[in-house]
Design a protein around this nucleic acid. Structure first.
Lengths: 338, 338
DNA sequence: CCTGGCACTCTGCGCGTTCGAGTGCCAGCA
DNA sequence: TGCTGGCACTCGAACGCGCAGAGTGCCAGG
């Protein structure tokens, strides 16, 4: 086990390196932090920390920089979550309160998060898996052409065109609409399939084909839209990556373009608490030089989606975590209100 | 006026520079292109071209590179639009044909364009200004809470919550829905306001407040959604910018994040033909080192929105223009079918 | 277990030199 | 008049060198 002071040294190294972006030496450490010991002692501690794999030196006669393992220890044991200042909190609230619809909420959130953390922000649209149906609407566009509109409790709307196998009368349409709604409104998406299973049987034989078609489109929509969408912002913050950013930036930009990768990234953060993935802890290779801070958010107690930021491993963890957590809370609040 | 051969020299310089990304000298030119003259002659021509401002040398003893003015001449007079190969055309069609809804079409388009041109792609959502109303739907979520759903002929759906000043009965609701639709379906957005102006008068006084509210929300939605949205893709292609990309990339990323800037950018391309803005021709400073190739697309003859790419001024103009034009055509086709 | 001292090892920087690509100019030739 | 070969010149890129400074590891002493 590492002594108290050695941990203190590690903390100091992380803080200084995050601040200056340059390897930090023993002398500089003792000058900037009141460790109460001499540089020589610090050097010994550093030697131990290096042996344990928490820090490393880029070249023989340079200062030390934290390794992924070092950051991990820092995040787990040495750093708390820095609460935001109250002006910041107010700014968040004001900014988010201006949103008019779901798209706007998500859009504002991503901008806000990027600005606050000065990093790349990723926000996942509220998932539909846990959502409930608020309303299903059927419109007749032409004798054999319908439009299905699905409205969720998170305010999201999905629509699909349907070509019917046979003309479908207005009364049948009204009937189907009414029955559909009476069965599924307020229910979870996952419950819908077996709730509508027997609907075709209660219609005239000439309408059954159409009803089946409508139902299959509805179910398909539920499944398809469970593949969550997300948006990102603040990519220009990637230029803050450091002096070697030209080489780091490409794989990151590529990873950010792959929704699948990002979804997996956020998805990995399973529990509703905050998740921090540091450097090589990220499965995707392109993100081996980045850290991801993610947290779930939702309108109630349950998390319906995730949001987070992607930045260099050399990031201000306490501050970033604080910002991410705060934003997630406020978004949840906004969502609950609407 | 420049002689035929001098133009040929300029063309050769542009082509070589685009290919090699390095200043091109007189000797290399004569070796790679059958100009039929000696390097010395080419040097004289270069001197003239430089005096006229079409090319420049980074430092005294280096080769020449084209200036914005040089590219402009190249695009206007020397280069055609390179048609795509038929495998490419087929690939485009196959890729776009798989789209299921509007979001998907736009998403696929931006990916396709980025891949094809290896540059940053920008696609604007079909504008609503010229759109017509396909259907207006009103749903009752609670006694005094309505949801308005607007469906356009481009397949787009917008929804808004409405808090009514007074409870609104189901019959009134059906009535309003029917009257609204009979008046606005098939009409242009711009015509809607005066078409619904007198609607409140035909309702019972107790319902008039709600009707007015609904109408104002509807009109508001029309106006708001005229501010077109757009999406971008292929930002990782920015790393292809060249050796000096670290310094160029930041302002570009920043500009790309500002929807307003991009909308203006595409908007400037007024006519339905293809527009090429080169370097300083772009109003936005951050894009002074980039060129923008944009073109309108639409389901009919009229362009309903724009799409294009943003890349370094040092780009393959004929190829890029060919790809942009081809993609725009196919998207228009897809839109017309659905 | 901490500390001061000392020798050692790197990197980064500035400087001068060389090398070569590319130019401009000029005299000669069709 | 216009093209060509030749020649001197310029200037940036690359290389080697030496130096200064930061940082280390180790050791002997408190």
């Amino acid at each position: 086990m590492l002594s108290e002071r050695r941990l203190e040294v590690l903390r100091a190294i992380v803080q200084d390196y995050v601040g200056t972006e340059e390897p930090v030496g023993s002398k500089a450490l003792t000058e900037r932090h009141r460790l109460g010991v001499s540089p020589a002692t610090v050097r010994n501690d550093m030697a131990v920390l290096e042996e344990e794999g928490f820090i490393a030196q880029p070249h023989t006669s340079a200062g030390r920089i934290p390794t992924d393992k070092g950051y991990r220890l820092f995040v787990d044991k040495l750093a708390g979550v820095k609460p935001l200042s109250s002006p910041e909190r107010r700014a968040i609230q004001n900014f988010l309160d201006g949103a008019v619809d779901l798209d706007d909420v998500v859009g504002r959130t991503v901008r806000l998060l990027a600005q606050l953390t000065r990093q790349v922000a990723v926000v996942q649209y509220p998932s539909l898996t846990r959502s409930t149906v608020r309303h299903v609407e059927l419109l007749s566009l032409a004798p054999a052409r319908l439009m299905l509109v699905l409205i969720t409790d998170t305010g999201r709307v999905e629509q699909r065109m349907i070509d019917c196998p046979a003309p479908f009368g207005d009364t049948s349409l009204a009937d189907l609409r009414a029955r559909l709604n009476s069965r599924v409104v307020g229910r979870r998406f996952s419950d819908v399939p077996h709730l509508v299973q027997d609907l075709p049987e209660s219609f005239e034989s000439e309408d059954r084909g159409t009803v089946s078609t409508v139902l299959s489109v509805l179910l398909e929509t539920l499944v398809e839209e469970t593949e969550e969408r997300l948006i990102i912002g603040g990519t220009s913050n990637l230029t803050r990556f450091g002096h070697d950013f030209p080489v780091m930036i490409r794989p990151v930009l590529e990873a950010l373009e792959e929704q699948v990768v990002l979804l997996k990234l956020l998805g990995e953060a399973t529990d509703s608490g905050m998740t921090v993935r540091i450097g090589h802890e990220n499965a995707h290779e392109g993100l081996n030089a980045t850290s991801v801070v993610a947290v779930g958010y939702g309108s109630g107690d349950e998390a319906v989606a995730k949001l987070g930021v992607v930045g260099p491993t050399r990031m201000d963890y306490p501050g970033t975590m604080g910002a991410v957590r705060a934003v997630a809370r406020y978004v949840g609040q906004i969502l609950a209100e609407s």
